[in-house]
Nucleic acid binder design. Structure first.
Lengths: 255, 255
DNA sequence: TCCGTCAAGTTGTATATACAGGCTAGACCA
DNA sequence: TGGTCTAGCCTGTATATACAACTTGACGGA
């Protein structure tokens, strides 16, 4: 791990995110105020302010001047994480997930990958290739590139035990995702890895994920068309207000 | 408009964003350093730092300790918007959208449709079948069922002029959607309507949409695999600052 | 020529301080 | 009883200051 300590404001953020994800702090609960953090953690108020402000920007909490800081409703977060981790998806179906690592290297980004990740041509990126199995049957070929300085210890990970997406979300919350789905005939190498029949259509998901406002990973996920469906669930940007409004009501009731 | 002046850090952000979008500052150009902003704008360095840091989080600029701040090259195209309506999607590409109505009837729901829409077997539903064209080339076959009492005047609509999805959102905001994407070989009738070559894979999107907590429409959207990509953009907790601001406004109105 | 060192400029973080403005509970008054 | 006001807490912003780490280029010695 890193020898250098994380900056203090980040430690505060991690602390609060930890309390939220552990369930100690639940939606609409009150988060310690800036001054309480100053006392408890021996930091200046500006540092506590930065931590809470960034948590606001990232959607973890909502702040109301004069009242305090409150855990926000988290509905959206779970769905993307759920969709992003194929291991959980398979386990949810009651099946067994295994994974074979084909490649785990440090490379120089070029072409489409450099463009997708917004890095210079030739920048360091990690390249992963894995095959995911559902009950011994190959279900996904994951071809993933990760910006190197986002995940410095990437080469040390055992991705047959922890999927890349789980590893990446552990480092830092992934905040935004963009994906393109395409039906296509994959090339021979991919067909062979996924044990696809001749003429069987394939489903390719190209997914780019942001953390802290910059793209950090770009993945091509090949699936056999006959054995896979891609499910998604989302609330369009137009009307996500009801849930948030409910939180306000909930807060009022509790006081 | 707001009577109160914007905070200084926001004015700095607006200033720099303005220079970028006007073309005065081009990708990879150097942005004034914190100290230069301090001198020029008569602010403290922390204020300039906050402005530049937030512009970094939002992807406008890239900062390198020891060197400076530079305009980043992404953001060239605007942020991806969720496109619900295939007509808008086609227009956005600068192409012409036309639509042919194959069927517009009142039917009794059965089987998969009744189940998907949570209505009794035999309940009234409208059934639409349309082919969407992008510049004379068929791009989507829309096979849609709509709960009858949600859209009583459905049979009177001219869907070659207004797409079903635009019509439905006009009736009532569609608040939630669930979709499954599948790669498949469509049947002969669909292949013919979409002018698909033999062996060409197809992309099927099955989308179910809720309004006021109940499913109101279920659509199967068939696309030719060689001519269509499905793009999506998810923003779970993070960077939805505009939306969050709207929520705050809403809260104020409610109190 | 080559290499190391150093200075200057830049970002990144942290602190102490200050003032403005929103919100609420409880004191106070009619 | 009912309304008003205020003290006290909270967030939001702004400033001045400080130190650390990084990058570049200039300078000077081997």
């Amino acid at each position: 791990m890193t020898v250098v300590a994380k900056p203090m404001y980040q430690q505060l953020k991690d602390l609060i995110i930890g309390r939220i994800s552990s369930g100690e702090l639940r939606p609409a609960d009150r988060v310690p105020s800036e001054n309480e953090l100053v006392e408890a953690m021996s930091v200046s108020r500006m540092t506590a302010n930065r931590a809470l402000r960034e948590l606001t920007d990232e959607g973890y909490v909502r702040r109301i001047a004069g009242r305090g800081t409150f855990v926000s409703d988290f509905r959206a977060g779970s769905h993307v994480l759920e969709v992003q981790n194929i291991a959980d998806e398979i386990e949810q179906r009651g099946h067994t997930h295994t994974c074979e690592v084909l490649r785990q290297t440090l490379q120089h980004a070029r072409g489409e990958v450099a463009k997708a990740l917004h890095v210079e041509q030739g920048s360091d990126v990690f390249h992963l290739m894995l095959v995911h199995y559902e009950n011994e049957s190959p279900i996904q070929l994951e071809d993933r590139h990760i910006v190197a300085d986002f995940a410095p210890d990437c080469l040390l990970q055992d991705f047959s035990a922890v999927t890349p997406s789980a590893y990446l979300t552990a480092i830092s919350p992934l905040q935004e995702a963009e994906q393109v789905v395409r039906a296509a005939q994959p090339n021979a190498a991919v067909r062979q890895r996924l044990k696809m029949a001749d003429g069987e259509p394939g489903l390719v998901v190209m997914r780019r994920t942001w953390s802290h406002g910059r793209p950090v990973t770009f993945a091509r996920l090949h699936h056999p068309g006959s054995r896979y469906e891609l499910a998604g669930h989302y609330t369009p940007p137009g009307t996500p207000k009801s849930a948030t409004a409910d939180v306000v009501e909930l807060e009022k009731l509790q006081q």
